[in-house]
């Protein structure tokens, strides 16, 4: 052993991008499974017009007499004879359009607010925190109900509702992370070197607060899938006939006794996405250790 063979300390909180590149994430089984499920649905959503055997809104009157799975309709049809497989495939489009948009917007707003509050402190922080408290007083569903009562159901209303309800939580997390890192010597060193706040936030702070944020992103994506599914289920989702997994479940509930698959299959689709998000979050958490 020479002086070159060093005693190394574990990289306790190296940036998440570093670890992604090292593909340590894929060594975690839960992350691999979660990622696989998400990629699967993403491919399905993008390729829907080519993959789906039928138009999701086309009605097959012959099949509506017996909606059970058959050679023509692998997963059967719904009560009025629309091909269930095609509807689930197109339903993925709705989910994978609404969810990324709303979660991205929530994280953008939340992360900026959290960074600003944590970094500047003082009044900026107090005002942002109070604003967050006010928003947190509105349960997500209630907020959405108010929005549609006034503005009617639309994609953007869902995005706004999710942003308003999730951004405060993201901001709190981000703020805590910033406060934890802000007093560390390497950030002080950057300040003492006269670096601009923007540089410090982007280059010194962000790479080191990534992991908890990514974990939170995965979890919240899961919640958002639940919320959007619930909206559809309550009939508050996107206006018909856009196929929407939550809406499909509610259409099937009345036929539960005879044809349970009509409700259970789309329910399984929603659940699989939520499970995938949670698995991915677990994977990130493991790799962060």
């Amino acid at each position: 052993m020479t002086a070159g063979a060093d005693r190394t300390t574990t990289p306790a909180r190296a940036g998440f991008l570093v670890r992604l590149r090292g593909s340590r994430l894929l060594r975690s089984r839960s992350a691999t499974v979660g990622l696989a499920i998400l990629v699967f649905w993403l491919v399905v959503a993008i390729g829907a017009p080519w993959i789906a055997p039928y138009d999701p809104t086309a009605i097959d009157f012959a099949a509506s007499a017996d909606p059970s799975p058959s050679a023509a309709h692998w997963l059967g049809t719904d009560a009025i004879g629309r091909d269930l497989l095609s509807r689930i495939i197109f339903g993925a489009r709705t989910t994978f359009l609404v969810i990324p948009l709303s979660v991205f917007s929530a994280f953008l707003v939340g992360a900026i607010a959290g960074l600003a509050g944590g970094w500047y402190g003082g009044w900026t922080d107090t005002i942002l925190a109070r604003a967050g408290d006010v928003m947190l007083a509105f349960p997500a569903l209630v907020l959405y109900i108010i929005l549609i009562t006034t503005f009617g159901p639309s994609l953007w209303n869902i995005v706004i509702a999710v942003t308003l309800t999730y951004a405060p939580g993201v901001a709190r997390l981000m703020r805590g992370q910033v406060l934890a890192v802000k007093g560390l010597e390497y950030v002080l060193a950057a300040r003492a070197a006269g670096e601009s706040p923007i540089y410090i936030m982007a280059a010194e702070i962000l790479p080191n607060v990534g992991t908890p944020l990514i974990v939170d992103l995965c979890l919240r994506t899961g919640y958002a899938v639940i919320l959007v599914g619930t909206l559809g289920f309550l009939g508050l989702g996107l206006p018909p006939p856009t196929p929407d997994w939550g809406g499909m479940v509610v259409e099937g509930v009345n036929l539960m006794t005879i044809y349970p698959h009509i409700a259970l299959l789309p329910a399984a689709a929603v659940t699989s996405v939520v499970v995938a998000c949670n698995l991915l979050a677990d994977g990130f958490r493991e790799t962060a250790r």
């Binding site: 190296a14 940036g15 010597e185 950030v187 003492a192 070197a193």
Partner: peptide
């Protein structure tokens, strides 16, 4: 504050901190 100091001034006065584990950004 450092944010308002001239380049010259900043280069002239530098600091070495106590805690070696936090003194360098682990991401860089």
């Amino acid at each position: 504050p450092a944010e308002t100091r001239t380049k010259e001034l900043i280069a002239a006065i530098r600091i070495v901190f106590q805690n070696p584990d936090n003194t360098l950004n682990p991401a860089h």
